[in-house]
Simulated assay, not measured.
Amino acid sequence: MVHASQFTFFIIGCAFSIALFITIISEKVKSKSTAETTTNKREYYSKPVITRFETKMFQRLKQAFPDHHILVQVAFSSLITSDYMPTRNKFNRKVTDFVILNHHLDVICIIELDDPSHTGKEDEDAKRDAMLNEAGYRVVRYDHIPTVKHLQKEVIGK
């Protein structure tokens, strides 16, 4: 004969086993779901270094200055520095569109290409230019792709 206490332990044991089984199954489903999400979702994606508009300008700059080096997307921190962290924070994460270097790798000019996304940001652009000017660089801005002759005249006085 089965005593009530034995029957109670049996029921509790069964309930515990079922709960454990459900927990294990749900964890496996969660981990499988997480693994699928992780393998199907990438955290990093490539993107073009420059826009189509900037690509056209880069090609024009190469035509205008075949004996110079044309750098794209140069970080301000590669061009300027400061002894003061609050000042560094002003140019942290800013980049120039193009930097033209001579054969000695001296900066001749910085070119900024203003597409329609710059509309309404004239004050911000002026502050960026002022930082670079204070550091001794000449900044030239264009809202269009100039001719080879225009670039040569404006950048190196040819």
Results as ranks from 00 to 15, higher is better:
93 R>K: 08
42 R>K: 13
26 S>N: 11
98 F>Y: 13
100 I>T: 03
134 E>P: 05
155 V>M: 01
105 L>D: 08
92 N>Y: 07
109 C>E: 07
149 K>I: 10
123 D>R: 13
106 D>P: 01
147 T>F: 00
114 D>C: 01
126 A>R: 14
157 G>F: 02
109 C>V: 04
112 E>V: 05
139 V>N: 05
46 S>T: 08
11 I>W: 01
85 M>T: 06
114 D>P: 02
48 P>V: 11
134 E>M: 12
96 T>W: 04
158 K>V: 10
9 F>N: 15
101 L>S: 02
6 Q>P: 11
13 G>W: 10
137 Y>S: 04
15 A>E: 08
146 P>D: 13
36 E>K: 12
26 S>K: 13
99 V>Y: 01
148 V>S: 07
8 T>Q: 14
72 V>T: 06
81 T>Y: 00
40 N>R: 05
45 Y>L: 05
19 A>Y: 13
30 K>S: 12
4 A>H: 14
128 R>K: 15
17 S>L: 13
158 K>D: 13
140 V>F: 00
102 N>Y: 06
33 S>N: 15
13 G>C: 06
25 I>H: 11
68 H>E: 09
132 L>E: 09
141 R>I: 03
19 A>P: 00
81 T>D: 00
4 A>E: 13
15 A>S: 12
25 I>A: 15
79 L>P: 01
14 C>W: 07
38 T>V: 13
137 Y>E: 04
158 K>H: 09
122 E>A: 10
97 D>W: 04
126 A>F: 04
50 I>V: 15
134 E>D: 11
94 K>N: 05
140 V>S: 05
8 T>I: 15
131 M>K: 03
52 R>Q: 14
136 G>V: 02
44 Y>I: 02
105 L>W: 11
38 T>D: 05
1 M>T: 14
11 I>N: 00
17 S>N: 13
143 D>F: 02
66 P>R: 08
27 E>Y: 10
54 E>K: 05
67 D>C: 03
98 F>I: 01
117 S>I: 08
40 N>H: 09
87 T>L: 00
69 H>E: 10
31 S>C: 08
148 V>R: 00
89 N>Q: 12
158 K>G: 02
120 G>C: 06
55 T>R: 09
119 T>S: 01
151 L>E: 07
12 I>T: 14
58 F>E: 00
144 H>N: 14
7 F>Q: 11
132 L>D: 03
106 D>F: 04
102 N>P: 07
56 K>G: 15
106 D>C: 02
29 V>E: 11
12 I>C: 08
32 K>S: 12
95 V>C: 10
153 K>D: 05
29 V>Q: 06
94 K>T: 03
58 F>I: 03
59 Q>G: 05
158 K>M: 06
70 I>C: 05
90 K>I: 06
49 V>S: 02
61 L>V: 04
149 K>W: 06
23 T>C: 14
84 Y>L: 05
100 I>W: 00
113 L>N: 01
11 I>P: 06
